[in-house]
């Protein structure tokens, strides 16, 4: 498979801050690629540079063999772009928005209806409602339909699921997975680590630097330490006690559980239990588990700091 997006040595500086620091990424054709990181990591800056809306300070990006600086006009025709902020016309109805975007790109809704059918049919009953009056989930579906109506080769989505509830987020990712069947390269950013598992490959980004680029499975395989899951009657007390334990390498809350790594090459489960019992904790359960993306992200963040 050849590459759709090639990013080499990309740097962007604002004032004295390196918003993007020597980014190198190669995104394959038809790949569902996730850019994952917290606010302020540089996700939007990177997407805006790819989208030809911002110039890089140094480095190059080509998309479908076109240069983002020189060939921006041609590139804009093959992009579908969904910015972070809802940017459709609030005073136009659903169908008016869709027709508008189709017309701008010299096509019609009918011509490419097949591509948006699955998504658009969910909001079609409300097609005469003004976009400003749609719920968050419906706005998102309309924005995606508008980004797709000219059958783009590359879809750029900047945090499409931010602020969206857990169920709507799952539905959105199912839609992206389905879209892949249509020969589209999808580049999507998100601050939600749990969304990573649905991507073909992901890049973890923090403070303008890429920490890792891999398939979600491989990132978790690279964790390199035994990870223990611990729970008890009083999780918060166990958390505080483990922070003062001589063998603790890391301890973090994960919902009802704690995730723990040990300084010793092989953690001694019984000695951890004994320590926690001595501190007055009860009903302690410890078992080894596979790390998730968030475990890996935190680990890489700390590694990067050192």
């Amino acid at each position: 498979m050849s590459n759709s997006i090639e990013i080499s040595s990309l740097t962007k500086v604002y004032d004295n801050t390196k918003a993007l620091n020597d980014i190198n990424l190669h995104i394959k054709k038809n790949e569902l690629f996730g850019l994952i990181g917290p606010d302020g990591a540089g996700k939007t800056t990177l997407i805006r540079i790819i989208a030809t809306l911002l110039l890089p300070d140094s480095g190059t990006i080509t998309v479908e063999n076109l240069d983002v600086v020189k060939d921006y006009k041609s590139l804009r025709k093959i992009y579908g772009y969904m910015p972070g902020r809802f940017s459709l016309y609030q005073d136009l109805t659903v169908i008016e928005n869709l027709n508008f975007f189709a017309t701008v790109f010299g096509t019609t809704v009918d011509e490419n209806y097949d591509l948006i059918k699955d998504i658009y049919s969910q909001i079609e009953p409300f097609k005469n409602r003004r976009a400003g009056q749609l719920s968050g989930g419906m706005k998102q579906k309309l924005a995606l339909s508008c980004a797709l109506i000219h059958k783009p080769k590359v879809l750029l989505l900047d945090e499409p699921t931010t602020g969206v509830d857990a169920v709507s987020r799952k539905e959105f990712w199912e839609m992206l997975k389905n879209l892949q069947k249509n020969d589209i390269t999808i580049f999507v950013s998100t601050p939600y680590m749990d969304e990573a598992s649905l991507c073909d490959r992901i890049a973890l980004i923090q403070k303008g630097k890429i920490l890792s680029v891999e398939t979600p499975e491989n990132i978790t395989k690279q964790f390199g330490k035994q990870l223990l899951q611990i729970n008890s009657d009083n999780k918060y007390k166990v958390l505080k006690d483990l922070r003062n334990y001589e063998f603790t390498n890391s301890v973090n809350s994960f919902g009802q559980f704690l995730h723990y790594t040990d300084k010793r090459s092989v953690p001694e489960v019984q000695s951890i239990k004994n320590y926690l019992n001595e501190k007055g904790n009860s009903n302690i359960n410890i078992k080894e588990i596979m790390p998730n993306i968030e475990d890996c992200f935190m680990d890489l963040m700390i590694e990067d700091k050192n």
Binding site: P38, T162, P191, N252
Partner: peptide
């Protein structure tokens, strides 16, 4: 905590 990094 929307958008905040996992450590913070």
């Amino acid at each position: 905590t929307g958008g905040v990094d996992p450590v913070t």
